[in-house]
């Protein structure tokens, strides 16, 4: 990563812009509304949170943003490009869209057990057509940034949970995607490690201009998020960190009434 280091990367034109997004499962009397008129915006380099109780619609929103679930309506713009509008995807190849535009971090790292740490990270870069040597060099650079260079040759089952999560983060970032979707990235970690992961996300988002959405239940990391969107019964509302943290239900009730 010499000529394409994070510092030299030009900032992306836009981050994530969602407007009027809704999603309904089923139809008729059995229809379940999972998302209602979602408005959301994440600037490049910004780390925002998505909070809410289980079943509120967080995962549905994340799946829609990750182009693995087709919304029922609305518009999604990723990296300055409208990828979903009305009722269909505008991008011809969603797999490619995910590969090139979106990084994913999961609650569990889900590393490939048969690849070394380095190759787990490099694989995605290889999928983008980079040579094995280039991809591994990029992986080594990221692993060094994450203080994991010494474990590059290790197999995933030799790593601790925190180390595995750092490798998963490196994998998500190896292609320097403009969008990063993190689903409970600190859930399996203790506080110091969770803070370290948030440090890392903030730093990398700042360096690469990546728009980061972090789905979390973890109150410890709320103060680390620049903005927070709260979700309940499919309604997404933006609130100040303190208000969402201290009285999320009251905030959401007001938002629901408006809807």
């Amino acid at each position: 990563m010499t000529s394409s280091s994070p510092q030299q990367r030009p900032p992306p034109p836009a981050g994530i812009v969602v407007s009027g997004l809704h999603k309904t499962y089923g139809n008729g009397n059995s229809a379940v509304i999972a998302l209602r008129d979602v408005q959301l915006r994440v600037e490049p380099g910004e780390v925002v949170g998505l909070v809410g109780p289980s079943g509120s619609g967080k995962s549905t929103l994340l799946k829609c943003l990750g182009a693995v679930l087709t919304p029922s309506g609305g518009q999604i713009e990723l990296g300055g490009q409208v990828v979903f509008d009305g009722d269909h995807w505008l991008h011809p190849d969603l797999t490619r869209l995910r590969r090139e535009q979106i990084g994913f971090i999961f609650q569990s790292p889900y590393l490939l057990p048969f690849l070394s740490v380095r190759d787990n990270v490099a694989l995605l870069a290889m999928l983008l057509g980079r040579s094995n040597q280039e991809a591994r060099a990029a992986a080594d650079q990221l692993l060094a940034d994450l203080d994991m260079a010494h474990r590059a040759d290790a197999m995933p089952n030799r790593l601790s949970g925190g180390e595995q999560q750092r490798v998963a983060i490196a994998r998500a970032l190896v292609n320097r995607p403009p969008i990063l979707l993190a689903d409970e990235p600190t859930a399996p970690l203790d506080s110091p490690r969770a803070m370290a992961v948030m440090d890392l996300l903030e730093r990398l988002a700042g360096q690469m201009g990546t728009s980061v959405i972090v789905v979390t239940h973890d109150e410890k990391i709320l103060p680390r998020l620049q903005r927070i969107y709260a979700v309940r019964d499919g309604v997404v509302g933006e609130g100040r960190r303190e208000r969402v943290r201290d009285a999320p239900l009251r905030f959401l009730s007001r938002r629901l009434r408006k809807t």
């Binding site: 590969r99 994913f104 490939l112």
Partner: peptide
């Protein structure tokens, strides 16, 4: 299956 789901999600083509 879980690894395959992850591979698909991160953008590995189904043909691979």
């Amino acid at each position: 299956l879980r690894e395959i789901a992850v591979l698909k999600l991160i953008g590995m083509p189904s043909r691979l």
